[in-house]
Structure formats: structure tokens, C-alpha cells
Simulated scan of single mutants.
Amino acid sequence: MNQKPGEFSEVPFDSFDAAILSVLQREGRISNADLAERVHLSASACHRRVQRLEKEGVIRGYVALLDPARVERRATAFVEITLSGQANELLDAFEKAVSRIPDVLSCHLMAGTADYLLKVAARDTEDFARIHRQHLTRLPGVAQMHTSFALRTVVQTTALPL
């Protein structure tokens, strides 16, 4: 049951599934045996549940979280973009183009003062200027762009509350 972006459905899960998901969000490399012990299930039952959660698309994948400073991405910029229009063709063209920029960590269609909010990882402000000049200013339909730089990350998690 793979979903396309923008499609929503609730997958029913119980307290064991929630416990499995909570642990996996924080420790994606935990062994099945350790996971099963942690959530008080047999290894085979735990494995079946993880497979079901993967198949149903609740678990979309597993990643390694990197320290941005150690991979020379010390500058985080949030870019608010307002487009010149709201036609589906323009939105589609913008979204397709922005998805090809490797420095963009996330892009969100917004309700509010801007149409899109981008999170951009750069080496420093000079590198951001390059990203801005070579990529962001060339995005289709951009009417306005406002950038804010993060001074310090106070809270950051990928774990959703369950």
C-alpha cells in the first residue's frame, strides 16, 4: 500500500506497533532480537510487525543522520518563496525543479505568507550565495524570496510523537 505524496490514510496500529516505531525512530540499527526484547514480543512476532509496518508504508526507510558540521554544512538557511501564480502547471514545474537541487533538505507547500518554505544546507554564507545564484533564482515562477539563517539549532528530531 504505497502512497503518493499528498495522499493520506491512517494505518491502524496497536501499542506494540507504537513501541516498535518509537524505538526504531531513535535506534534504526537495533537488532530484531534487541527490539523484540525492548517491546516485550517474541523475535518472530516483532519481525512480522516490522515487515507489515514497512509494507504498509508506515516505515518509509532507514537512514544515517549526519552531523552537518562534520560534513562541512555549517549554515542552515530557511527560504520563504512566493510564486507569481498558483496554476497547477506552475506549482508542478516549481516542485519538479526544486526537487533537483541537492542542497535543499526539505520543501514544504505552505499556507500563510509564503507559498513554499525550503530548508537549505550550505557550507557557509558564500556557499549559500552560490546556491542562491545558481539554483534558487532560476526556479520557475518565483516572485519573491526571503531568507533567514539559523544561528543555532535548539531542538531537532526526526522522531514523530506516537
Score class of each variant (00 low, 15 high):
residue 5 P to H: 01
residue 5 P to Q: 00
residue 6 G to K: 03
residue 6 G to C: 10
residue 7 E to Y: 08
residue 7 E to C: 06
residue 7 E to R: 08
residue 8 F to N: 08
residue 9 S to R: 14
residue 9 S to K: 13
residue 9 S to I: 04
residue 10 E to S: 14
residue 10 E to A: 15
residue 11 V to A: 06
residue 11 V to P: 02
residue 11 V to F: 09
residue 12 P to M: 11
residue 12 P to A: 12
residue 12 P to T: 07
residue 14 D to G: 15
residue 15 S to W: 00
residue 15 S to D: 13
residue 15 S to Y: 00
residue 18 A to P: 06
residue 18 A to E: 15
residue 19 A to I: 00
residue 19 A to T: 01
residue 19 A to E: 06
residue 20 I to N: 00
residue 21 L to K: 05
residue 21 L to A: 09
residue 23 V to M: 03
residue 24 L to A: 12
residue 24 L to F: 11
residue 24 L to Q: 05
residue 24 L to R: 07
residue 25 Q to F: 05
residue 26 R to S: 12
residue 26 R to Y: 02
residue 27 E to C: 08
residue 28 G to Q: 05
residue 28 G to W: 06
residue 28 G to T: 01
residue 29 R to D: 15
residue 29 R to E: 14
residue 29 R to F: 11
residue 30 I to Y: 10
residue 31 S to L: 02
residue 33 A to R: 14
residue 34 D to F: 02
residue 34 D to K: 10
residue 36 A to Q: 04
residue 38 R to P: 01
residue 39 V to D: 05
residue 39 V to H: 11
residue 39 V to Q: 07
residue 40 H to M: 04
residue 40 H to V: 02
residue 40 H to L: 09
residue 41 L to H: 04
residue 42 S to P: 03
residue 42 S to M: 03
residue 43 A to M: 11
residue 43 A to I: 13
residue 44 S to W: 04
residue 44 S to V: 14
residue 45 A to N: 14
residue 46 C to Q: 03
residue 47 H to C: 05
residue 48 R to I: 08
residue 48 R to A: 11
